[in-house]
């Protein structure tokens, strides 16, 4: 029993720490310890077996001096920028309208969610066929049918990244739609009723009620989607057969980490790449939280 003489806020703080006790043990041992381990490893030349010899900042200097790293970093940010804008925009548009539809609502939502439950290996195979040249490929057939020239898609250094991003957005958008829908449903109806009494039009309702009240959902999706696109891997790996090609034009940083760690067994170097990715993710997330998560 919590002593009654404690102030209300002290009592609540005690409760808070009691709720957090087990999770903190979990996060420290299962999540933080391995992360710290990777951080320490990034200053060593460890390659799977043997001792870890410290080599100072060598891994980081090597990374920053590697032109491939900058290509990979640029790719990663293109995935982030394009992926975030396109997926959030589409997901909101779908969810916003779907929320108002009652006829076949559940069925429609299931249609949009189906891609999210598929596996990347299987779906990447289908998408690779879609990108084939005429007469096999669906997309090129469509382009030619409407009188446009064929596109090389996966065989072009300029288009391949976007050709891979498309299935990634396709697979991820069901998640965003469901979260947006949950957020829209959490908006108390009396706000809308009040707006209706005021005679507000749909656009005013959207910008003055829906979007502001949806802020926690938007913040959540922006942060988690950013993290997801910065950590993109599955579709790149499956669509390019593990290469990140052609000519590294689609390789994201996680694929580079994967290659360094498991193809070259250079764990120390891979850890340094992980630390850099982590710092980027942390900076972006904190920035987004700071900019967006202010209470109204």
């Amino acid at each position: 029993m919590v002593p009654a003489r404690l102030s209300l806020s002290a009592r609540r703080a005690l409760w808070a720490w009691a709720f957090l006790a087990v999770p903190i043990v979990f996060y420290v041992t299962i999540r933080l310890y391995p992360a710290v381990d990777a951080f320490v490893m990034s200053f060593t030349n460890w390659n799977i077996v043997g001792t870890r010899a410290f080599n100072g900042l060598d891994n980081y200097l090597r990374l920053f001096g590697d032109p491939r790293f900058w290509t990979v970093l640029r790719n990663t940010f293109v995935y982030l920028g394009a992926g975030l804008v396109v997926s959030m925009g589409l997901a909101f548009a779908v969810a916003y309208h779907l929320d108002k539809v009652r006829f076949g609502h559940g069925f429609l939502r299931a249609l949009y969610f189906v891609p999210h439950i598929t596996t990347a290996v299987a779906m990447a195979w289908v998408w690779r066929w879609f990108y084939q040249p005429v007469p096999v490929g669906l997309f090129n057939d469509l382009l030619v049918a409407v009188g446009l020239p064929q596109q090389p898609f996966l065989r072009s250094t300029g288009q391949a990244l976007f050709a891979i991003l498309a299935p990634a957005v396709w697979a991820g958008i069901g998640f965003q739609i469901v979260i947006f829908l949950a957020g829209l449903k959490a908006i108390p109806a009396h706000y809308y009723e009040a707006a209706a009494l005021d005679g507000a039009g749909p656009w005013r309702v959207l910008f003055e009620i829906t979007l502001p009240l949806l802020r926690p959902t938007v913040v959540f999706l922006t942060v988690t989607s950013s993290i997801a696109y910065l950590r993109i891997f599955d579709y790149v790996y499956a669509m390019t057969l593990g290469t990140g090609g052609p000519l590294d034009s689609t390789k994201p940083i996680v694929l580079m980490i994967f290659e360094t760690a498991f193809k070259n067994f250079e764990m120390g170097y891979a850890a340094a790449q992980t630390v850099v990715l982590f710092l980027i993710l942390l900076a972006i997330s904190l920035l987004q939280l700071r900019l967006m998560d202010r209470r109204p």
Binding site: P34, A35, D37, V254, A270, F278
Partner: peptide, 29 residues
């Protein structure tokens, strides 16, 4: 819903677990 000292740090620490690729965690696990 609770206000207590250390709350932002706990939140950021938990959030940051999203930012380490699984690839680097599996070896210690």
């Amino acid at each position: 819903k609770f206000r207590f000292c250390g709350r932002p740090a706990v939140f950021v620490a938990i959030l940051s677990t999203l930012m380490v690729p699984t690839e680097m965690l599996v070896l210690p696990w």
